[in-house]
Design a protein around this nucleic acid. Sequence first.
DNA 1: CCCACGCTTCGGTGGTGACCGAAGCATGTC
DNA 2: GACATGCTTCGGTCACCACCGAAGCGTGGG
Lengths: 228, 228
Amino acid sequence: MSNALEVAQIAGLVGEPARANMLLALGDGRALPAGELAACAGITAPTASEHLARLEQSGLLISIRQGRHRYYRIASPEVATMLEAVMVVAAGNPPRMERFRIDPELQLGRTCYNHLAGQLGVAICDALIRKNCVVLDGDVAHVMPAGLQFLSNWGVDVGRMGKHPYCRTCIDWSERRPHLGGAVGIAIHKRCLELKWVEHHLDSRALKITRAGRLGLERVFGIIGLAR
Amino acid sequence: MSNALEVAQIAGLVGEPARANMLLALGDGRALPAGELAACAGITAPTASEHLARLEQSGLLISIRQGRHRYYRIASPEVATMLEAVMVVAAGNPPRMERFRIDPELQLGRTCYNHLAGQLGVAICDALIRKNCVVLDGDVAHVMPAGLQFLSNWGVDVGRMGKHPYCRTCIDWSERRPHLGGAVGIAIHKRCLELKWVEHHLDSRALKITRAGRLGLERVFGIIGLAR
DNA sequence: CCCACGCTTCGGTGGTGACCGAAGCATGTC
DNA sequence: GACATGCTTCGGTCACCACCGAAGCGTGGG
């Protein structure tokens, strides 16, 4: 069965402490830069780069370049499922490991390196598409004239951010829907913080949507019914 | 996260072609002896022995000694799930691998090295327990006087099989219920063949239950409602 | 335009582990 | 009791690969 070779290859990628560390660090759906993953694994940048390249080539991770950083994330729900299944076995049946699922705390809103992710990030992205403010095109998003106007009215000056990663889409495996990254995504996040629509919770990733935020999101973006 | 070490250890066990071959060969719930697994993997007995010992020690496989053979099988549904999850990733998303589930052909009845397994094996074991013919005790089964009588009436002389592996229980991960192995299990299988209650199907593992078999199983054992 | 920073590529080193042959042990068979 | 069979243990060999330092490349900031 030549199949066993492929199985062994995939499992072998996970079967190395440094790589396992990196994969587990990405387990909550975040995208992390190579350098940080190297630190997680306790190895130097060259070694990490080698590992990450192999993980990407084999389809376990995907990466996007953003400036001089390169963000890696889990490639698909299938990969997440596999990692979870390995964790279940690794934990031994009795102790009954906590699952490799996204923390409920993070499900609603979280930051994905400076921009909004989770259900909130997806909802905002959807709203902007519905309003013809942005148009998705692969992994980039084009901000339409209506979008410039809309965001400007809301207090985000998108006009004078000339840098390359203008507006990108970003998908993590836990939500299978895109949210907005890039400079525009970062600006939206910043504005939400200014308006106190969201506030950072516990650690720096989880976001709490405030009462004002719920009202504002409904009034400005037409977003209703976000899970509590 | 020390957890990553354990994850890597488990995944690393699968991440070796020889071991992956052996695990996949056991994927349909059978129990196979070490020598046969060595052949599956294309390695010599010493190497296979080493691998199998590690797989058992880590809880991926369990083994029973039976005479001078040692039968290995998948230790738990969790392990099977993990292997399946790895196969899904290994196959790449597009080709959509056939699942690591028991062949439906084998679900109803199959042989587990000379004795009956699958739903049929479990049903017979249940019936004998219900009739107070056997009592399970860990991985051995005691045949009660009523059982000697019952089996003798049915045409199986259990009295003069004095060998060690008299009657054992055997659980494969696909059915989570025991069936009978050992000399008694083998004799039952043999008698079913003599009576033409079952016949071998396609390859040598899948069993077909004949019309006479359904009638007989109901009349003698009180077994009804086996899936078609 | 130059420097700082993050990532990648390149060689070279060291340790781990897969593998086998030979010998040993247990079990079943004649 | 002697032999065959199946598995295990033991040593030794070899290949692979994780790892790092140094150098190279591209991007962003001053």
